[in-house]
Design a protein around this nucleic acid. Sequence first.
DNA 1: AGAAACTTTCAATAACTATTGAAAGTTACG
DNA 2: CGTAACTTTCAATAGTTATTGAAAGTTTCT
Lengths: 167, 167
Amino acid sequence: MKYTEAKEQLIQAWGNLGYSWGLNKTMAQIHALLMVAPKPLSTEEIMAELSISRGNANMNIRALLDWGIISRLSVPGERKEFFKSEKDVWALARQVAKERRKRELEPIIKVLREVNQVQTDGSEHSKEFKKVVKELKIFAEKSDALLETFIKAEESWFWNTVLKMMK
Amino acid sequence: MKYTEAKEQLIQAWGNLGYSWGLNKTMAQIHALLMVAPKPLSTEEIMAELSISRGNANMNIRALLDWGIISRLSVPGERKEFFKSEKDVWALARQVAKERRKRELEPIIKVLREVNQVQTDGSEHSKEFKKVVKELKIFAEKSDALLETFIKAEESWFWNTVLKMMK
DNA sequence: AGAAACTTTCAATAACTATTGAAAGTTACG
DNA sequence: CGTAACTTTCAATAGTTATTGAAAGTTTCT
């Protein structure tokens, strides 16, 4: 397989994966591009490589900055701004986990806690409801604690511990 | 808070969470509804509770069956079919993990393996590319192994092990 | 201050995804 | 078999999200 072809395939596949991680397709593609680029790229270069418009590039670059997984960079002597990706996959995964925890897990935990306060009126419906909510709440809180551990963990420590688990 | 209000809130919140887990909104809402229902529900009941059309209900019920997180159930003497959700949150999480592994992680691993075969032509671009692909591949494969452990794990064993990790 | 180089915004529109509901299909019972 | 009870399909449409590109905004240099 040739390099350019491989690169396109990776960007495509990364686009899909990123999408299921809560990024959007273009965001994930820009990210993939920056991951494999040996040098920081300018907006122009990103536009050209992915054949996307200026506005689209700008919006998605901003979103990636917002997620904290790429960074802006000024090259002395150049007016343009350049962007580079965090290349450490571990740091990246951690950042994504952090964002998703904030955006997804925290809201549902909040609702589960509120909804857990409901007065049971003695009906079968409300009893079943309480039971399910309680279980979900416990599960969500445990997951949250686990995610927190992951987010704060050292890479080698984490994989070693996991390795022990797997035996 | 009143029960009906609480139920609506939960279905709403679950809808959002499910969405970020790869289900779609209606799918996740039907699932939430079946989770809190003390008895299996018919298509009619689901349609009424969520105010959705027959076609929509049917399609999303099928998708949930497909994911293996609800089941069809015939009540003797009744022509109608009823549906009930797996109520064990652990089993549910495991099933979702299994599906996502199949739908998302496996395809990217396949691509990473292929793309890892690329001939490096000695250019900086292709060297950087190789390096990144290799790291991604290692990470993805480790994650896959971890997911597999999770999917096969016993609930109490899993949380105990995790608890030890967190200390 | 003016002009060039660049970035950001946003209304229009394209692309995609979800939903409806009526029609076609299936099943099961008299 | 016929028909009532139910399920499935699918073309039309509504709703949502992504993308464009030109205009407005900003920065930096002379």
